[in-house]
Design a binder for these strands. Structure first.
Lengths: 348, 348
DNA sequence: TTTTAGCACTCTGATGTGTTGAGTGCTAAT
DNA sequence: ATTAGCACTCAACACATCAGAGTGCTAAAA
């Protein structure tokens, strides 16, 4: 496990082993390597090199006298040093972009579509979270009488996030009253965050106004605490075809990552911190529980503004190059859509 | 396959076979039956009866000389004639109800919670669709200036459904203008469905007003066409523990039902037509593709008003009695919450 | 010094063969 | 109508055998 640079040839072998293993899903031996790809060297030489690579921790044998399989370290080396970054083919770009532009869609439909596209083109499972503002600022409140004494509070945040809540009062209230109150509160709170709203509301005495304040502050607080962000998933079905998910355990890991709120939040948190496309291979030591899944993640949205995360999950043996290009393309596309929608003038 | 009433004893045997098979997950033989439950009769007699039940199509043997397993028909007979309907234990009812009432939640959080509760107490996968109005009627529109020439349209429907859409105009617009226009349109369209809105809007000439009309009509039309209803899922992980999902095929079926939009819509459509709790066993001849999954479904919401569907999916070998009580309880709970929220005065 | 041919060795996976035991269907006695 | 008894069947398991893919090592070749 010493820290040594790999020779040109060793790198080449690593590249071919990973490539071949991704294709064939079976451990790759020295012979298949020389016949499949024309390296100007004999199997014996390859064997020696492979033994060395195994010593260094990049390859492993499932059992004595089987071919070699990349280790997590091996994959990591591959994606960092060996993989060429390719653009998503133009044709696919156009097809995808077309789907997004052909209809006037709402944000949640874009997100759903993103998940579908990611799943479909990567042939794996996908995960997309709804974007959220880094800090949330008040934009507008609307009060709508639903019944005699029920009022629908509609809260609009900078960035266009919408929240609703229904309130019930003991006494009936008039729509005209509500309209005036809503205008007043909107003026009073405009552009503030929830702390500032609390501060600015000291002079309020009206019961309805106070209740609305509570709801608004409560809601904004929850949003800032990064609860309740919707998650869109798709393509779980795709992953079932991979041989590593024949046994129960593999699937179990994958589904846990997709389903368990806590894990998703951790992952997304990770993605939101770093920019660019991130590749997580087999838990990376941090997450024991998913040693068999590979994740390609990216942040999207406007820097320091509304951001979300999207990614693809699959077996370790994943065509990373291709997957990365899809995820990168989709995150850029989505970022553009979002900044077109919301503009760049999100208050920082 | 003749149509014959089962004798008392045959019914009893059916009941015990199903019960035992659900518990043990292995084919049940004549001997286990007499030792486990004290029937006052010998294994040989049971064997004869079982042979008869097999002839009638209620039981089957996985192979000669294994115990018996219920067929789809057998399960169906069980749930229709033999299963006693039990209430969810009071304690559980209280625990669940408590979760729903302890916090002031929004609709989408209730739905998510529903899915979680269903999954958890049934130890299977769950599916909940957002409720939708049978017919959708306009309630309120709000226009909020986001940037110089971008406007957020917030559409509120009777029943409290919220939709948003961002519009961009060539020329800047003032918030004051927008407020007046929104009030005017709200008055003009109040209580109408999308066709009536089109009819009522003949006199409009203002460009912004026309664009808003298009968006509103378009959105309402889409909603009525029953697109875009959100789906909440949970508990897929639970089902993986069942032995019938050890092999890939079982899981595949289950995930297809959960993931494929089309199938979900069909199922939900089914659930919305009939009232009460519905049990679908192995596709019921209609759906070839999921011969191995059992589904317990119920409608919730206000009759002829806002309704959705919720249910539990699992292996055929499911504790139907228990599952039915959970689903029934949850659908009632949710119905109550919804009618509390929206009141009964939904226009028909 | 590096590469390679050759070879013995190892281990999986497929195939085949008993053996066991749970469970059956049938027959004859109760 | 029920049941004891019995022969029979078949999946599941253990075990042995065998082919083949792939290895590591050694000694020769480059």
């Amino acid at each position: 496990m010493e820290k040594v640079e790999l020779t040109e040839r060793q790198q080449n072998i690593m590249r071919l082993v990973v490539r071949e293993y991704i294709k064939s899903a079976t451990p790759v031996g020295s012979k298949t390597l020389v016949t499949e790809y024309n390296i100007g060297v004999s199997p014996a030489t390859i064997r020696n090199e492979m033994a060395r690579l195994e010593e260094l921790g990049y390859l492993m044998q499932p059992h004595t006298s089987a071919g070699r399989v990349p280790t997590e370290l091996g994959y990591r080396y591959f994606v960092e040093k060996l993989m060429e970054q390719v653009e998503l083919p133009n044709e696919e770009q156009r097809m995808i972009s077309h789907q997004f532009h052909q209809a006037r869609l709402e944000l949640d439909q874009w997100l759903r579509l993103s998940a579908a596209v990611l799943a479909h083109t990567s042939r794996n499972a996908s995960l997309v979270t709804a974007p959220k503002s880094a800090l949330c600022h008040f934009k507008h409140v609307e009060l709508i009488s639903i019944r005699d004494n029920s009022v629908l509070v509609v809260l609009v945040l900078e960035g266009g996030t919408l929240k609703q809540q229904i309130l019930t009062f003991d006494t009936p209230v008039q729509q005209s009253e509500l309209g005036a109150l809503a205008r007043q509160l909107t003026d009073l709170w405009s552009g503030l965050d929830y702390k500032a709203i609390l501060a600015a509301s000291a002079s309020l005495t009206d019961e309805i106004a106070l209740t609305v304040r509570d709801v608004v502050v409560d809601t904004m607080q929850r949003i800032e605490a990064r609860r309740s962000s919707d998650i869109y998933r798709d393509g779980l079905l795709n992953t079932l075809n991979h041989p590593e998910f024949k046994n129960r355990e593999g699937i179990q890991q994958l589904i846990r990552v997709l389903e368990e709120r806590q894990l998703v939040d951790q992952l997304v948190g990770e993605a939101l911190q770093h920019g660019g496309v991130q590749i997580i291979i087999g838990g990376e030591g941090k997450w024991e529980e998913f040693s068999d899944v590979g994740i390609v993640l990216a942040r999207y949205g406007v820097e320091d503004g509304v951001t979300g995360a999207m990614g693809v999950l699959g077996p370790l043996r994943m065509p990373y190059s291709r997957t990365v290009s899809v995820v990168r393309y989709m995150s850029h596309l989505m970022s553009n859509l979002i900044s077109d929608l919301y503009g760049y003038d999100i208050p920082r």
